[in-house]
Every structure is written in C-alpha cells, then in structure tokens.
Design a protein around this nucleic acid. Structure first.
Lengths: 213, 213
DNA sequence: AAAAATTAATTAAACGTTTGTTTAATTTCA
DNA sequence: TGAAATTAAACAAACGTTTAATTAATTTTT
C-alpha cells in the first residue's frame, strides 16, 4: 500500500489514542512499518503530518444535508434524518472526533482551530435554515435554533467522550462496547427524535414507540 | 503561599491549557516560581502531580443535589435548579473540564478513568431519581432518563469545548468571550429549561418568556 | 533562654532517555 | 544514467528524575 497513506492512517490512529504530544514519530513509523526518516521525507514535520491527518480524514465528510434543505417532506422529518446521519457519522469514528475535540480544547496549535471548527460546524448553516423554515411555516415553535443544534450534537458527543463514562452513565458492564453497539445508536436516535418532537412541534402528542405495539 | 498549593494551581492551569504531555515539569516549576526539584520532592513524579491536581480540584465539587431530592417543590423546578447549578459550575472552570474530558478520551493513563468518571457523574444518581420520581408521580412523561441527563450535560459541554467553536456556532465576533458571558449563561439556562419543560411535562404549553411582558 | 542536634526545605547540577529532525549513503525503479 | 525512495546513523535539544550540597526551620538538650 502507498506508504504515505499508511503513515496517515497510522498517525490518525495513534494521535487519536494517545494525543499529539503523547505520540512519537518513532512510534508512528514503527507501527506503520516504514523507516523513521520517511515521515520527514513525506510530511516535513510532525506538526505538518498532523495537519495532513485532519485534512485527509475530513475530506470524506461532505455536506449531505444540502439536498435535504429544499426537499418537500415535513421539516421534522428532515430533523430525523439529520439526527440519524449525525449519529451514524460520529459513531463510525469516535477516535477522530476525540482528536478534533481534544485539539480544540488545547492552546497548543491555535492555527488549527479554524480548520477544525469548520469541519465540526460544516452542516450547521443548513440545520439552522431547516429549523428556521419550520418556525416560519408555523410547523415549529419559536426556539433558540443555535442552542438546539448544540443540544443535538452535544447529546451525541457526550456519549462518545469515553467508553468508561458511557458505560457508567448507562449502568452497563465492562463487556458492553458502547461505540459499536447498534442498540445504543437506536436508543439514542429514539431519544433525540422524541426530544425534538416535544421541543419543536406545536401539537406534540407523546408519540409512543414500540412498547405498545 | 504554600509552595505545594502553588504548584498544584500552576499545574492545573498549564495541564488545562496545554495537556499533560504538552506541559513540562520545568515549565510548571518556572511558572510557579519554585525550583524544579521541588516537584519531585513534593509529588514524586509528574504523573502523581497530575493525579493530585485532579483530586485537589475535584474535592470542591460536592453533591449539592442530595438535599434537593426530598424537597417539596415540583419536580420540574428541581430540574431548573440542576440546570442552573450545572451551568454555573461548568462555566466557572472550563479549563478543568477540558482537562477531565481530554484525559478520558486518551488511552494514556486508564487508571485515572474511574476517578474522573466518578467526578463527572457524581450527581447523576440524584438527577435520575428526580426524573424517575417525576415519572412515577405522573408529573413527567415517560422518557429515557439516562439519555435525558446526557442531553443536559452534553448541551452545556458542547458550548464549552472551545471558545472558537462557541463563537462560530453563535455567530459572534472575536471580542466575544463566551466563557465569561453572563448573557450566554442566561440564554443557555432559558433554552435548557424550555427544552426540559417540553420534554418532561405532560401539558407543556409553550411558556413564553420575557418577550411578552 | 541559648546552644546543639535533627529534620525539613530548597538549590544547582548532572543523570540517562527520548524527542523531532537531518545527514549521507544506499537501494529501487524507470 | 538519474531521479526517487529508503535506510541506518547521528544530531542537538528537551525530557523526567536524581543527586549531593546547602540553607531554613524545628526540636532537643543543657
């Protein structure tokens, strides 16, 4: 395989697990099975490798909600799709999300903050427009759109902070692997949809789920 | 001042800003105005200093909700108090929260994960009991209590991840300091209370705020 | 209460490793 | 033959920690 890409993937894994300062270039080289000097040869410096990792991994994250904005379905259903899309994406690579959040919370490389916030907030404009349209067309109550978005993303994120905390919060045993649990994703989806129905819809009947089928 | 405490406070500040691996003991010593060897003398090792920092800073965080549990006020008002208490606490020391979350997301010192989750989830049992009692006494709808807690804490946390992202999410200019903004705390409090009203209360009329006074 | 003895606190210097990066030589491939 | 890729070795700097010597504070003895 392309050694450059191997380095990127390995670096992403180790930076995610151990942090930037906690990972040595020797470790990356060894794990990737390439010579130490190859990293400087391809990327110049450790910091530049890091920037390349972020760029490489984020290039796959597209603005998938743009088409949703002008779709004909009810606004609340667009919210449902956004919820499921976010859950899917964030659960599919928790380590990369750790890396991004960790970097944002550090004062070490502030020049990267803009790039990372851009990645994390890539779809916020679209979501905001969808909620606002819901309000304008009287489908939704008047809510704080920006903080509603914080609630959506923040709830998902809170479960992804660490496996240990997620397990403790949900009272699960050690053999429960939260980040790979399909059940948890479905439970989270249910919760967020119910939450957003109550929060956004004007005549929000407590729409019961599977229980009374 | 007591040099031991000076070291703890300085270490907490630098670990919060630059991470554990990103901070050298020489830096801590210099910033604290003590000799380098004093850190080993008092704390034995850098890692032990880190554990002492977490212990030192978290000893102040008490379970203030215990008394609330058996209070006579409506359950939803207990939720209000919890919301304001969490906002106040988390906004009062964002850096320490960064430190805790960062440590949890790392594989570096897993022996600390239990201690940190204990700190972060210290009041979860109480909150859960309050929501559950609300459900049992028919004040609240049937909700996912655990994920409701994730929503509460996760929403606040999402705004605290970084000043840069918070500003971008709220479309504020660079001179806006989110972590010290009283207005933002009030706005967040309003949002979460409205959210929890809709989510929890059975007959949730859109209870308007200041706007129509 | 003063002097001596003992413990604690503080210091500068050095320890051996590990760090990110570079060099210069070698191999690979077109 | 020549450019690109890969290697082992070396670089200086920074790292956490320890040492041994010195000063400060406390306790014990007279």
């Amino acid at each position: 395989m392309d050694p450059k890409e191997t380095i990127l993937i390995t670096a992403m894994k180790l930076f995610g697990q151990k942090g930037f300062e906690g990972t040595s270039v020797r470790e990356i080289a060894k794990d990737a099975g390439v010579n130490l000097a190859m990293i400087s040869y391809y990327f110049g410096s450790k910091e530049n490798l890091f920037e390349n990792v972020v760029e490489y991994k984020s290039s796959g994250i597209k603005g998938v909600f743009a088409e949703l904005e002008n779709s004909a379905i009810p606004q609340i259903e667009k919210i449902y799709k956004i919820i499921d899309s976010y859950i899917e994406r964030m659960f599919s690579n928790p380590q990369f999300h750790h890396l991004l959040h960790r970097e944002l919370s550090l004062d070490q490389r502030p020049q990267m903050h803009d790039a990372i916030t851009e990645i994390l907030l890539r779809n916020v404009v679209t979501i905001k427009a969808i909620i606002q349209k819901g309000i304008d067309t009287s489908q939704f109550k008047t809510v704080d759109t920006e903080l509603t978005i914080a609630t959506l993303i923040g709830t998902i994120n809170h479960l992804l902070i660490s496996e240990a905390m997620c397990r403790k919060l949900l009272h699960k045993s050690k053999d429960f692997n939260p980040f790979q649990s399909k059940k948890l994703k479905e439970r989270l989806s249910e919760h967020l949809k119910q939450l957003m129905r109550s929060h956004l819809l004007k005549n929000s009947k407590p729409q019961k789920s599977k229980k009374n089928l």
